[in-house]
């Protein structure tokens, strides 16, 4: 079974209420950005600090909830596509369950990138240590190894970005936070299926190129900028279907 690029662009139409769901998804993306901007827009006109802090906290919580929902939504779509649900686009009425899926995705993602974060902290500590030692031979030695570690860190980040779709697929199968670091499951998906994974990577990057190109055209029309949140949301769904197709090829 091959990954079908064309299907990824048209699959949303198979859902009975696709128009409404995508419209809400795009609108929420726009609202999240707007909510984040409110405190900065209000700042010049307010003098009460407690009121401003309350507003800042409310806006932050609201924006975070919407962001979690937008993060979780594509992963729920992958899950539904893998398990063959007829209504694979989750209904926005279940907002809190989508937010919960987003929280799980974020925690899983954090676990996945934990080694990279750990490595980054080591590099940071090396440089801080070297600077605190001043100009000495040991300091120069640490700085040299710090730069070697920076290159290693860049390599590790590249490797992780290549593995990210694989582990996302593993996570989306059961929506278990620890599936993000279940490398055994990742390997099971990859073994004997590496050509499909290569195709998946190619297609995900191609989707990025196509939607960047589309966004650039919208920017050139100036008024079209308003449509970018919907475009991004649709791009996420296209990527979600590609990952689901990859998992199903196994």
């Amino acid at each position: 079974m091959d990954i079908n690029f064309e299907q990824a662009f048209s699959f949303v139409k198979e859902d009975p209420k696709w128009g409404k769901k995508i419209a809400i998804g795009g609108a929420l993306s726009a609202v999240a950005l707007f909510v984040l901007c409110i405190p900065f827009m209000i700042l010049p006109f307010t003098s009460s600090v407690p009121l401003y802090v309350a507003l800042l906290a409310t806006c932050s919580v609201l924006a975070a909830a919407i962001m979690f929902a937008l993060i979780g939504y594509p992963f729920l779509v992958i899950n539904n596509r893998i398990h063959g649900s007829e209504e694979f686009l989750p209904c926005w009425k279940d907002f809190f369950s989508i937010v919960f899926a987003g929280v799980k995705t974020t925690v899983g993602h954090f676990l996945f990138i934990l080694p990279v974060l750990f490595f980054s902290v080591i590099v940071l500590l090396m440089f801080l240590g070297a600077f605190s030692l001043g100009t000495s031979v040991i300091s120069a030695f640490i700085v040299f190894f710090g730069f070697v570690f920076i290159f290693a860190l860049i390599g590790l980040t590249t490797l992780y970005s290549l593995l990210y779709p694989l582990m996302s697929g593993a996570f989306s199968e059961d929506m278990n936070v620890f599936s993000y670091v279940n490398y055994k499951r990742g390997w099971e998906l990859l073994a004997g299926n590496w050509l499909n994974y290569l195709i998946l990577l190619l297609l995900l990057v191609a989707v990025g190129v196509i939607f960047h190109f589309a966004a650039m055209l919208l920017v050139l029309t100036i008024a079209g900028v308003i449509l970018i949140p919907w475009l991004c949301f649709y791009a996420c769904l296209v990527c979600a279907d590609l990952v689901a197709q990859f998992v199903k090829t196994k």
């Binding site: 297609l203 191609a206 196509i210």
Partner: peptide, 10 residues
């Protein structure tokens, strides 16, 4: 459009 995306991706 897909062709452009794919050559960019390669």
């Amino acid at each position: 459009l897909m062709y452009i995306g794919l050559i960019g991706a390669v």
